[in-house]
């Protein structure tokens, strides 16, 4: 085999006499071209894999960095901060009065944890409401990918947060973790209910003022009508000022009588 290749070499490099003569002496360093032959592909592989690896790691790092730079979906979780601050509170330094507290009472911690769960519920509701709309927007390409990434990160964080709260609750009382979010949900509903009532209650003052105004207007009208009537009937017996006060009283009486009758009918209806 070796000889055969040599002979073809001979044939091609015909004019080279020295090469021809030393062809027999070349046989010992045959392993050398074998190793150099292997060196090249291995170097190639190493460089290839190395560059791919470094590219991917740099790329991934950059992406993580970019993701961490993304604006969080929610603002600061204040109630979580309050709860954790309470856990780390040094009660003796933070409390005053004659008797120092040796530890933050459990009831306070429970209240803080419940408050945190309420905030979580509100966030979960927000996320659930936003998800379908956001998904269609992303599919249509109406909003950037970044928004979707932010949203997904918020979802992941929320999941961790819920787990954390459940664990904390179970530490206070066995099985509290199973119901704490039910309680928090009811609290949230109650908060919304009260807010709605307060909103409606706020309308009362303006409504009342409007009605007072209107009633005064109606009274005025009555008074004028009465004045007109009495001007026809009785000529100038009474001085105008006295008549005016008189008819004013009449107007009040009439005004008070009218709706009372209507109310009488209404009440019967309402009682049915």
């Amino acid at each position: 085999m070796d000889n055969a290749t040599n002979s073809t070499f001979n044939g091609t490099f015909d004019g080279n006499g020295t090469f021809n003569g030393t062809s027999g002496a070349f046989t010992p360093p045959v392993p050398k071209p074998f190793w150099t032959g292997l060196l090249l592909p291995t170097a190639y592989l190493i460089i290839l894999i190395g560059s791919l690896y470094s590219f991917s790691s740099v790329y991934r790092q950059r992406q993580i960095a970019r993701a961490s730079k993304l604006e969080p979906w929610f603002p600061q979780h204040v109630t979580r901060n309050i709860y954790l601050s309470l856990l780390h509170l040094d009660p003796e330094a933070a409390s005053d009065g004659e008797k120092k507290l040796s530890k933050v009472p459990d009831s306070v911690l429970k209240a803080a944890l419940l408050k945190r769960a309420v905030e979580d519920i509100q966030r979960i509701v927000q996320l659930r409401q936003a998800k379908p709309a956001l998904q269609t927007l992303v599919q249509r390409g109406s909003v950037g990918d970044e928004l979707w990434q932010r949203f997904q990160r918020a979802e992941q964080e929320m999941e961790l947060e819920v787990k954390d709260v459940v664990n904390e609750a179970n530490a206070f009382a066995p099985n509290w973790g199973q119901v704490i979010f039910q309680s928090a949900n009811e609290i949230n509903q109650n908060i919304m209910l009260k807010k709605r009532i307060a909103e409606m209650q706020a309308e009362l003052d303006s409504d009342k003022a409007w009605w007072e105004n209107k009633r005064a207007g109606i009274q005025d009208q009555f008074m004028k009508e009465l004045e007109g009537d009495s001007a026809d009937a009785a000529a100038a017996i009474n001085p105008p000022v006295g008549r005016k006060t008189n008819s004013d009283d009449d107007a009040v009486l009439v005004e008070a009588g009218g709706p009372a009758q209507a109310q009488g009918g209404g009440k019967k209806k309402g009682k049915k």
Binding site: Q76, V78, T79, R80, N81, I82, L84, S85, L86, H88, L89, P91, A94, S95, D96, G97, E98, K99, K100, L101, V104, P105, S107, V108, A111, A112, K115
Partner: peptide
């Protein structure tokens, strides 16, 4: 988490904070 300056009353166990942004949260708490 962010450590918040909180104050615990020893008698009533009511929480308060010099940070006025927290007042609503602490009232409810």
């Amino acid at each position: 988490f962010t450590l918040l300056p909180l104050h615990l009353d020893a008698e009533t166990k009511a929480l308060s904070s010099p940070n006025t942004n927290l007042a609503d949260h602490l009232d409810e708490l």
